[in-house]
Nucleic acid binder design. Structure first.
Lengths: 201, 201
DNA sequence: GCGCAAATATGCGCACCACGCAAGTTTCTG
DNA sequence: CAGAAACTTGCGTGGTGCGCATATTTGCGC
């Protein structure tokens, strides 16, 4: 990667991280793009060269992580579909390498801020949209694995949307529970249930 | 219903319908709030008393329909869960009584406009958010039927999100196919697959 | 019928936002 | 090292969401 793309990726990451941090700390409505740009050491106008809205910046990390699921699905070995899916999903929700770069001082306060953030209507839409974008990639990967056709068959899209729905549900439940249940446990449970027909417990 | 609520519902419906029609005809970016308000015979400021954004107005009918699924689920007879779900969902996508009130002149042109509309990023988020709102109601209805706990159990949320995902996937596939496959057929297929474990076809 | 309280519609104003355009500045390439 | 390409920045504009004050309409008790 050249110096150019390097700096670009750094600026993007800095903007996205600043957007998340400030939103969690102050609330969505109390953060101006100007603040985010300043925190990332860049002009306000530049912000919109990277993201077309505050919400997009905040959700960028979630989107990246979701897209990595599709990557992992393509890269993995031959194995039954739902094993591959479970492996690919859990790999993105394990011990987070990024977490080390942004240490959280007060975990409880951070969680409270995150709860505020995800309850913001404007961000809910953006978050779900990120999932939908990843869903398209996942559907393509599933089509490859199963020999189905994206244009003609409902199946790969259905699987992909069920996977994304499982992720959304598991993370939402994680934020709902107190004390918090680990996301990986909830994810594994959700995917297993979906893969076996969602019969009443 | 008193005269007051009556008029309110009418205004709301008029605004939402105007928003959809104008957006389908001209494209999202070429419709101003002012236009929608004018088409509904109301002041621009009043628009924001009903909806807090253009997107919300456009998606209102979709939201209402989705909420009716939860209603139907509560109202229905005792029967196996997935039978009840399928019945409740299909009831909202049958011969549309609303369609009679708003006859479409050129079906092909309308479909093209709808395709433009759903490809608008801002509206995708709003659409998905409407689904998420209905999802909460559906989850509650499922919890009732299955004796599970919304706060503690993942199951009702998982079922609800899978149902909403099925609807989204089926309608998206409907818009993708040419000639169009009936939505009801796609919906029934999707729900059946989800209820039986999404094994490869 | 009648008048009062509550709900609703409207006008006005403000802060913010997304984005096009036209420089200025940095990085890549031969 | 020079020219091209990519990126950043400042400025201006149209549009939006919403708080606040006011006028109008509706519902309700008498």
């Amino acid at each position: 990667m050249g110096l150019r793309e390097q700096k670009k990726a750094e600026t993007r990451a800095a903007l996205s991280w600043a957007a998340v941090r400030l939103t969690v700390e102050r609330g969505f409505g109390n953060v101006k793009v100007e603040d985010i740009a300043e925190a990332a050491g860049v002009s306000p106008r530049t912000f919109n060269n990277y993201f077309s809205s505050k919400g997009e910046a905040i959700v960028a990390r979630h989107l990246d992580r979701s897209l990595r699921i599709a990557e992992a699905l393509r890269a993995g070995p031959e194995e039954p579909l739902w094993e591959a899916i479970t492996r690919s999903v859990l790999a993105q929700f394990g011990p987070d390498a990024e977490a080390a770069a942004h240490p959280i001082a007060d975990a409880a306060q951070w969680t409270a801020g995150v709860r505020m953030m995800v309850s913001e209507p404007a961000l809910q839409g953006e978050m779900l949209r990120a999932g939908a974008i990843a869903e398209a990639e996942i559907a393509a990967a599933v089509a490859d694995r199963t020999g189905t056709d994206l244009q003609q068959d409902l199946y790969p899209h259905l699987v992909a949307s069920a996977v994304v729905a499982s992720i959304n549900t598991a993370t939402a439940h994680h934020l709902r529970t107190d004390p918090p249940v680990p996301v990986s446990r909830l994810l594994a449970d959700a995917l297993t249930r979906v893969a076996t027909g969602l019969s009443a417990p």
